[in-house]
């Protein structure tokens, strides 16, 4: 993982720790805890999904954990952390969702993600999360 000069080692580790919180919350199917990683007005953008605010994010996750993501695990690791100011930065990760029985992320599920993070009252939160399929691009414009 590469990092920039600003931001203490403690800040970098605390930001990287957000990925562990999400991995644990996912394993428990705990939408509250996952949503709690976000700021109150945080946003979550996934392919075909846009959720604004903790309440919308929590509802989406609760539905997903009971539906498509039932019995799944999530995995991911930090690739890079860059600070914009001592209180804000971006974490880039790669990972994806593991179906029951899988131990490595399938190409079709492989994502890279940007976590825009802010420090509020001494702890780091997720202001915006966006992921994108890592191994496939959008179709050529004009194809339907």
């Amino acid at each position: 993982m590469t990092t920039t000069e600003t931001g203490t080692a403690a800040d970098q580790a605390a930001i990287a720790a957000l990925t562990q919180k999400v991995i644990a919350a996912w394993a428990y199917g705990d939408a509250d805890s996952f949503a709690g990683v976000f700021t109150e007005d945080g946003t979550m953008i996934l392919p075909g999904v846009y959720k604004k605010g903790r309440d919308e994010i929590r509802a989406f996750l609760a539905e997903s954990f009971a539906g498509n993501y039932k019995g799944t695990q999530v995995t991911g690791r930090p690739l890079e952390i860059r600070f914009f100011t001592p209180d804000s930065g971006v974490l880039i990760t790669q990972g994806g969702v593991l179906a029951p029985g899988e131990t490595e992320v399938a190409d079709s599920q492989s994502i890279k993600a940007s976590w825009t993070v802010v420090k509020r009252d001494g702890s780091w939160h997720l202001a915006s999360y966006q992921n994108t399929p890592a191994k496939q691009q959008l179709p050529k414009p004009g194809t339907h």
Binding site: A13, A14, A16, A17, Q20, K21, I23, A24, A27
Partner: peptide
């Protein structure tokens, strides 16, 4: 060390797998 710990009053809080 595939987990992170944060200090709190009287100990630490751990998240990870």
């Amino acid at each position: 060390p595939s987990a992170m710990a944060a200090p709190v009053d009287g100990g630490v809080v751990v998240n990870g797998k």
